[in-house]
Write a protein that binds this DNA or RNA. Sequence first.
DNA 1: CTAGTTTTGAACCGCGCGGTTCAGATACTT
DNA 2: AAGTATCTGAACCGCGCGGTTCAAAACTAG
Lengths: 225, 225
Amino acid sequence: MTEGSTTKAGKRGGVRGRIDKRQAILEAAFRIFARDGYGQSCVREIAAEANVAKPTVYNHLGDKETLFHEAMEAAVVRTVGRSLAALDRLREPEGEMRSALEETGHRLLKSHCSSESQALRGLLHAEGPRFPGLLKEAQRQGPQRVQDVLADRLARLALSGRLTITDPDQSSEQFLALLTAPLELRSRLGTRRVPDAELRAVARAATDTFLRAYGVGGAGERDGA
Amino acid sequence: MTEGSTTKAGKRGGVRGRIDKRQAILEAAFRIFARDGYGQSCVREIAAEANVAKPTVYNHLGDKETLFHEAMEAAVVRTVGRSLAALDRLREPEGEMRSALEETGHRLLKSHCSSESQALRGLLHAEGPRFPGLLKEAQRQGPQRVQDVLADRLARLALSGRLTITDPDQSSEQFLALLTAPLELRSRLGTRRVPDAELRAVARAATDTFLRAYGVGGAGERDGA
DNA sequence: CTAGTTTTGAACCGCGCGGTTCAGATACTT
DNA sequence: AAGTATCTGAACCGCGCGGTTCAAAACTAG
């Protein structure tokens, strides 16, 4: 990525043909890989999905492996942005802690459950062992970054006396755990679509527990309603 | 493992044995599938791993798909037992709540991080979408069962006044979330071996947070030491 | 021992894959 | 206009796969 516009940049694209083939190929590749898995995907079909001839694929990306590698990296970049954006709500939240956390959680979950995110995690899980470098990178600038940024936010909130956490990294890890882990089972490893109401419920439950443990006052804010 | 002392030595049999070929094949198949993924595995190699001729594989299990299906189901059965066993510690725990939860959590994590469990989850994640029936069954009698049994235990503890939870199912879900989710990142999706000390730390942190939220007294037991 | 079942190795088949080649079509540049 | 870089379709190659066949072997039962 980042070097997309080297030589052939900046054309206006007709609906067909002159768009940046490379990106079209990478997106199509990700779709096919996500659907069939790496081993079951064939380059032919990827080319078809991208509306491109097979040699074109091999011109832009020499190899099925590097095609996969590149398609995955692109997907990581696309995905991580949405998760990080969800955390913006936590910088200097105005209302009460509960609603800020709950909404942040809900946004994180929506990003987490987007079909692209789920497909990405599935593929990483599936082919990660065969692409250790890719896996490491993806984790570092994906979930790890989200967790770090959230830790920063939580630390600020603790400093301003709105949370009673002492280890922001651990709290961040655990808040994310309370959010995402339940989805594993509920979405059947990403196979089932989870209705938004359920996401909201999970976010609410996570926030509840988190505030019970780390809300101001130490006793947590028991919420009867 | 477990293949070392089979009963092949009973007769003058050479290298090949009279063991239940079928099980040997299933175990070998799981090993190869786990290592290479479904699409990249070839039956030839599975047969070799099982010390068996290729037609024998097709005699016992007619098809690569059903071979996979069956191997996975066997692995599920093998795995779930270990996790359920870890929960035994929670029936009428004698000491304090903290140590019981912590040790239970640690055992669950050890089971969760066993190479077989990790491989199983990886394969489910990888090929689940192509085997929806298998995925559903595996989830139902795997994680779902663990979560349900834990909920039972927690409910008993709440009833006897040792926890202040109101929704055992949710608490079970969240305790498991606090345990397993952090491992996703730390083990790099099961690629990295996590040292036992780290498992202990995660179990401790999970227990800490859980008790802060649901320990007796509502305020949770803040534990300095 | 005989009779019967299972396992074995090796050869075989058809197929679809990853990857390449090439001549011709297409689009941008000047 | 010509010139250049790219894209295209189709054919092609070699290979290894899933799956089968078969006759010889190994083992079991009686």
